[in-house]
């Protein structure tokens, strides 16, 4: 399977930013500083379980609900 990491990243950024482009950028920067660089993942990136778990943790820290 592929693309789950990108979907999680997009969910975090979208939910946190609520359409505010400045917050989109700062959320992207926060993710990068937390160790997951959104630019390194695409729809075809493999579903690495370690990265997925890390992103779920980051989502919880940021108060974002992952379905």
């Amino acid at each position: 399977m592929a693309g789950q990491i990108k979907r999680l990243i997009d969910t975090i950024i979208t939910q946190r930013a609520k359409g505010n482009t400045t917050i989109m950028y700062t959320t992207k920067a926060k993710l990068t500083l937390k160790g997951v660089n959104p630019d390194l993942f695409s729809d075809t990136s493999a579903d690495d379980p370690e990265t997925i778990n890390r992103l779920k943790g980051i989502a919880a820290e940021l108060g974002v609900t992952i379905a």
Partner: peptide
């Protein structure tokens, strides 16, 4: 540097 968009941290 960590790259975010065109910016380095």
């Amino acid at each position: 540097g960590l790259k975010v968009g065109e910016e380095f941290y």
